[in-house]
Simulated scan of single mutants.
Amino acid sequence: MDATEFRELMSTEGLGLLDSLPPFDSQADVVRTVATLRKAGHSPGLVAAVLSQSKLRARAVAKFGPFAERMLFTEAGLEQATRLKVAALHAGRFRDAGVTRVADLGCGIGADALALAAIDIRVTGVERDEVTAAIAAYNLAPFGNATIEHADATAVDLDGFEGVYLDPARRNDARRLADPADWSPSLDFAFAIGERLPTGVKLGPGIDRDLIPAGVEAQWVSVDRDVVELGVWFGAAARPGVGRSALVIGDHGTAELTAPADSPDVELGELGEYLYEPDGAVIRARLIGDLARGIDARMISDQIAYLSTDAAVETPFAVGFRITETLPLDERAIKKRLQTLGIGTLEIKKRGVDIDPAQFRAKLSLKGNDKATLFLTRVAGKRVALLAQRV
């Protein structure tokens, strides 16, 4: 969204028109809607702006719930925004640390600032993009304890702030920036603040773990089995004795595995009747060994993040499967067996083998009404295919 489009949207006419639209429906006749709005006398630019916002609001419900109905977004801002339920946990850390005033550097559309303001923490959001800063100011307008500044995060005077939250920009337009020195602000800048103030730094979950400083809390967070972020926490915002954490959020609620450091793996053992795939947050945090010990499971092969048990167990930290057959990892043998069983819907998972699941699936000529999961992996170092059903 450019500044001209934003000004049209923020007019009395624009906001009124946006709020008058019914919830966005992807199946609706958009051409007819545009024609109706143009016939009512609205300019082409305004119509485009309000329809774009209506679409973004519909997408934002997954992250913001009913709050999305009164918020404004940019495409990039929504994509990068913290989910509100995760932002609330971030805010809770500062509250528990006794922090009453936080600088949110690189606040984007204001998701984390929203969560901080909602629990009566004074927050100043800083955003270098002018339009995004204005959108954040709109989203935070209901809160008298929140302000937004259009500025460079590295130029902000932190005197008077008791805590800092940073979400460094890791893209330049559509291009992902690989070097942390090129992020805005840079990783070194963010971590340097953490050395003197209670600080949280939001990073991508796949970051090189060697970049994580010693003595901090690193928490990988997954929502509905999707690993959404790595939070690196400093000072009073970190918990004593916790160096690694896997926070898993889903229909079960919130569950967490914590440890002082990476946990050692368990011993290898025989393949049992059940196979468990650890949540991605558990894998990223390298707490697979602690999970295995907690559910009395064993590893099936070196460096393979699958666990096996002889009995079904309940855990929020892994998805369970009952193994129905062990097959040679041979395309023709697997294809023949799947056809015999009438399996037409197949979920393919792989670890430890150099196979493209999409290409492999295309060669199976799946037909039938039954469904299954196929694991392409190694057991005791040998390549196998495991046919399974979800527990």
Rank of each mutant, 00 (worst) to 15 (best):
A259T: 03
A259C: 02
A259N: 08
A261E: 14
A261Y: 03
A261K: 07
D262S: 05
S263Y: 01
V266F: 06
E267H: 05
L268G: 13
E270K: 08
E270P: 05
L271N: 04
G272H: 04
Y274M: 03
L275I: 15
Y276H: 12
P278N: 07
P278M: 04
G280C: 11
A281M: 04
V282W: 00
R284P: 01
R284K: 15
R286M: 10
I288G: 01
G289K: 07
G289P: 12
L291H: 12
L291E: 12
I295C: 08
I295L: 07
D296I: 02
D296C: 01
A297I: 10
A297G: 08
R298C: 12
I300S: 02
I300T: 12
D302E: 15
Q303M: 11
Q303T: 10
A305V: 07
A305R: 05
Y306A: 10
L307A: 07
L307G: 09
T309K: 06
A311W: 04
A311N: 11
T315G: 09
P316F: 12
F317I: 07
A318W: 11
G320E: 08
G320V: 04
F321I: 07
T324D: 14
T324F: 07
E325S: 13
E325M: 09
E325W: 05
D330G: 06
E331L: 13
A333D: 12
A333Q: 14
A333S: 13
